[in-house]
């Protein structure tokens, strides 16, 4: 694996990040699709475990790679599930963009002070708020949808915290496994 990566790096310089993005996006897409298979108690509520990948990627590789991974996940995920260009896709894309923007903002402001949990909670709330806003302004401009907002945001808070804890432990596991190698 390491050898083949170096070989291709020699042939196509600058391709390493593409491979990184592709691999991580594949992981996120797999989680995304697995999650789509589970029934949801409420439309719009799901654990969002694929966001664990986004947060960990952001912490380790920065905003650019995280944005690529998140947007590829939404695009390819929707193609595979069959929701491409449907309202679901638009909501998904809005959520992902909102989450990435807030990751950049919070991560930039709180560099060093904010860890995976804070990032994940902020991203989950941004994701949900963005979706509610688009759903309300484009699809269902009915006050009842806004009545649903507190419940959806509570779910986002809870699942964001859980995803954050998972992301934090994944990140520290990765750091632990790398540290000896990097001395």
């Amino acid at each position: 694996m390491a050898v083949s990566q170096r070989e291709s790096e020699a042939v196509f310089p600058g391709d390493r990040e593409d491979q990184l993005v592709a691999g991580l996006a594949a992981l996120a897409i797999a989680i995304h699709i697995l999650e789509a298979a589970f029934p949801s108690p409420l439309p719009g509520v799901k654990p969002g475990l694929a966001n664990v990948v986004t947060v960990v990627v952001y912490l380790r590789y920065g905003l650019r790679v995280a944005a690529w991974v998140a947007l590829l996940r939404v695009l390819v995920g929707s193609l595979l599930i069959g929701t491409f260009l449907s309202p679901t896709f638009l909501l998904s894309a809005t959520g992902a963009v909102a989450a990435i923007v807030i990751l950049g903002v919070i991560g930039g402001i709180g560099r060093g002070a904010v860890g995976a949990v804070g990032l994940s909670v902020a991203a989950a709330l941004a994701h949900m708020s963005g979706q509610i806003w688009v759903a309300y302004s484009l699809f269902i401009p009915h006050p009842a949808l806004l009545s649903l907002a507190p419940i959806l945001l509570t779910a986002a808070l809870v699942f964001g915290s859980v995803s954050g804890l998972i992301a934090a432990s994944v990140d520290s596991l990765l750091r632990g496994s790398e540290d000896p190698a990097h001395g």
Binding site: V114, V117, G118, A122, S161, S172
Partner: peptide
């Protein structure tokens, strides 16, 4: 590495 940092607590409270 600590799981929760100061900024995380702040964001949790604000959220």
């Amino acid at each position: 590495m600590r799981i929760l940092r100061a900024g995380d607590v702040l964001i949790l409270l604000a959220g």
